[in-house]
Design a protein around this nucleic acid. Structure first.
Lengths: 242, 242, 242, 242
DNA sequence: GATGAATGAGATTTCATTCAT
DNA sequence: AATGAATGAAATCTCATTCAT
């Protein structure tokens, strides 16, 4: 009993410390970018030594993966919160809320959004046969990489499920393909985010266009594409249906 | 005269060699990614030594910029070709063709698409005050960086102009904002491309969804959003108009 | 009383554990050498943790000194046993027996012989002014270092005394200088031992020479050099006499 | 032709630089000992960077081996010089001179003598089947280790040959076994050297014994053991003959 | 006193980049 | 402009030793 308590206490401690380190790393990465960040600086920001840092994260890349995992977890949390907030509403509202959640998430967490995009660019090398070189063995064996693989499809699945709920409650057209539409939603999100990031981190206008408008537009578009009340749905029925 | 000929011959030679190097670099970058690529390997792939490589490109980043420049040039060429092909058609057709051109370009040139996205992510650091560390002075002063700045908005401008032509010939709604819509088009393109890249480099389906469908859908959507025949345009008029 | 018993019980326990550790250390040192031996491995060989190991021996060097002390004690024991065995015989016989004892000791205990040689190399740094760096203050203050200093000259003294006994009983030439001759004897022993060690640990021949012959030869030579019956003693009298 | 010259010039340069580094290392090792010597310090003593240092010597141990090789070369040089000096004299004189040469060499080069002794202690692990652990694979594959193996027996062989010459010119007893006697000579040398080193590096007396006397004595003894004029030779003939 | 985690010091490696010839 | 060697900065690793509990 005492044993178990002890163990869990230690685990908790380790997790706390890990979080502490990750936060320090996030701070530094945000400040100077991944490449310019020195492990030494991250360590001292976390109030530990380089060696201790290495005992928690086997490499700089690994630390980055840990942040990526956090980003994905954080996104998932936001998704669950959004789902909870909209469980009383129609499916369509919840789905649009999910998309907005993701967009807002990316707006508010530049590092996290970069991180996730990098991650999804990275896995591509793994799923395909070639390009083994882009992903080190070390990376593939890293705990966080495995953890990421376990949850990487979660937001995707949640969205697809919510689309199905919308179809059940009649707020989303039955001919809409949940998976296809989820992907399309992601494509909107990524496009918006990249545009946002391609812009300055603190600027909200690009070529005098207020990017908030772009967001609003995308959300409306998404709603229109799924919503049974929309006339667009009929027009584009053949693509959406598949 | 002899002087001049001599000079121009030397220039030609230099350009040839530069191209040779860039091709070698592209090969290596495609194979192992930017970070894992070693200058040594690029040099030996190009059949020269590291120092010679450096005499052509002052840094690894610079070399990457050179490729980026090539990518942008290549994209621009494709844009001009598309414009030429569609100069007899309505504006809306030409605009959709431009979007398709970009998408196809990204499909066919993974490295180039990454390169362009990176570039646009990079400039953001420059335009914003902070993050001086992410872009070196040296880079900012590099020839390719300046060249890029000169043409970076070209595809953007060409699209906006073509939208205007569409408005003149009546194929595109007058209330559509050319710049906003161009951005929105880019957002579609980027979203599609990233989804493509987040997938395996040689797989064309993600979660059993044929990504070509996504492309088709996006193109139709774009057309619908601008086209005067579409009812969607009315529904979403307020966002599109600005 | 209970206090005292308790204390002595604890002391006994401590001594037992210390021995246990030393044995583990000897095993590891024999296996991989001092430099490659890791405190971790020694600890786990002894069935304890590193920190416990450190509570017994303040440093790796200290542990080595403890082994050295054991080696010297062991050698001294062998000397006493030899003396006892030869107390009925002539001095010369006893002296030669002592030399043989040392040689056999080195043959049978490679680690101990290295240890003793290292120790005598080490003290030199202390006695001489420079090279403070080679011996830490901590080492110099260590218990085993002090213990070693107390007995380091014992085998030397015993030999010298036995030479004197030999001179008294007429078996050793009076003109022989006990101290000089003892040193000379050590030099024979060391030379023989190093030759032995420079060879493979389990090979007994070097360049087809049976090293046992070398031992026998050295012992005969030693006897001849001291023995009054030898004519050599006259020949080399001037050196031996001093 | 120019090629060849060029190559040899570069080789020469490299050798010069290597020597420069070795000298720096010797200086540092002499000053603070092997363990306390920092690669950084050695590099800066040699006027180069750590990385350059590593490009010459793959590890600290390797550098030590290089010094060892130098020591052995240096000893060999001294042997050849001694042989040359004594080529007009009798074999016995030359052999005794060789022994004296070695002793003097050790007296004058503490680091070198330690180095050689360490080396001969080290090889023992290699020649014997067990104890593979004491010698890293890296060490065994090192150039200097191989070079050392090529010349390690040279002084030994030269001595044995000179003993044979002595037997031919009648100055050394025919019943003396050259190899056995050479080994015996080495044992004298090592014993003397260790005694010297076990003493302070700058002290010449141990227990009030002038170590020079020990040297003189050993040399006389060696001469007596081989010389046909000596009566000892008869006495101990059986051992010497084998 | 025992345990697991942390520290400090230095060895070693990896590369982009630069120098000398 | 080409070559081989060198530099500098940081990543990574190894271990003896120490701390906190």
């Amino acid at each position: 009993m005492c044993e178990i308590e002890n163990r869990s206490m230690k685990d908790t401690k380790r997790v706390l410390k890990e979080n502490n380190i990750i936060e320090a790393a996030e701070k530094i990465f945000k400040l100077v970018g991944f490449k310019n960040a020195k492990m030494e600086d991250i360590a001292s920001e976390a109030g530990i030594t380089k060696v201790t840092l290495y005992s928690y994260f086997q490499s700089k890349e690994n630390l980055y993966l840990a942040i990526t995992y956090r980003a994905l977890q954080s996104l998932n949390d936001a998704y669950y919160k959004s789902l909870d907030l909209n469980k009383g509403k129609k499916g369509i509202d919840s789905v649009v809320a999910l998309i907005e959640t993701f967009m807002t998430f990316c707006e508010e967490n530049f590092l996290y959004s970069e991180t996730l995009l990098d991650y999804f660019s990275m896995v591509r090398s793994t799923s395909s046969g070639k390009d083994k070189t882009k992903l080190t063995e070390a990376t593939k064996e890293s705990l966080y990489y495995m953890k990421l693989q376990d949850i990487q499809n979660l937001p995707f699945k949640l969205t697809a499920k919510e689309i199905e709920r919308g179809q059940e409650d009649g707020s989303i057209l039955p001919e809409v393909d949940p998976i296809f539409t989820t992907l399309q939603g992601w494509s909107f999100i990524i496009g918006y985010t990249k545009l946002l990031n391609a812009n300055g981190s603190n600027k909200s206008t690009l070529f005098n266009v207020d990017l908030t408008d772009l967001k609003t537009f995308n959300l409306k578009l998404a709603r229109a594409l799924m919503s049974s009340g929309s006339t667009l749905s009929k027009i584009d029925a053949m693509s959406v249906q598949r």
